[in-house]
Design a protein around this nucleic acid. Structure first.
Lengths: 124, 124
DNA sequence: CACGTGTGTAACCTCAAAGTTGTATAACCA
DNA sequence: TGGTTATACAACTTTGAGGTTACACACGTG
């Protein structure tokens, strides 16, 4: 799973227009005009979004006369999902191990020690 | 789950430096200097990345003397993961229903019909 | 108090993303 | 053939992301 691939996938997903396009494509393939209709934006703009999605491997395109229908390509979604799940799992394992608490205790200890060695010239 | 929130989350995850920071934080909280060490980049640059992550709600920050330790905040990860899983599921359901195949058959039929009505003046 | 350390902020540069309009290409339709 | 439809491409503008350096501020230490 190349990092560049994840870069492209997450960057593609960061735009609400592109997520909406993917959502639409989840219910079947569609042409550019059909995809562009719901958006207050020109057709070239949508074509650019499609190019981004295609470059990220999230969609692929076919031919039907002068139309270039788009279809969803779920593998990059699976990769991204895998990355997220991996780190969520790691985090939860660490949370269960109470590493966080231990680190906070250590920090607290350091602070206390520091305060202790600093006390002498203060009020009293 | 507001769309802006997903925007911020995915945008934050689109940068390899930030993903690496999150990976590091998965094994416990850390200060800015500690996080900056592995990267060929200045401390302010790392601070900017941390600001992005914090704004996306992916990390939160505490106080330990002059240090501002960062800790992973997994909820946005769960949201993003949920979005991905949802659309993967929808896509797979559609795939099982063979919608794709049906649409391709329909397209094929249209093309055939068109070719049929166009034939007359051609060879034969 | 003076100093070093850890961080945040400001001003700046560069580049690419996201949109626009206008035009070209390609396939169907009359 | 000429016209319409679906799409791509090119050139341009604006905005923001990601990096830099220089500097300010807060806090613990000698």
């Amino acid at each position: 799973m190349a990092p560049d691939r994840l870069d492209a996938t997450f960057a593609a997903l960061a735009d609400p227009t592109r997520r909406a396009i993917l959502a639409r494509l989840a219910s079947g393939q569609a042409g550019v005009m059909e995809l562009a209709k719901p958006f207050a934006m020109s057709q070239p703009a949508v074509s650019k979004h499609l190019k981004v999605l295609e470059h990220a491997g999230l969609i692929s395109r076919g031919r039907d006369a002068q139309r270039r229908p788009c279809r969803l390509e779920p593998l990059p979604l699976a990769d991204a999902s895998g990355w997220l799940d991996h780190y969520r799992e790691v985090w939860e394992r660490n949370f269960r191990r109470l590493d966080l608490l231990l680190e906070e205790m250590k920090a607290q200890d350091t602070k206390t020690k520091a305060r202790r060695t600093k006390r002498p010239p203060t009020k009293r």
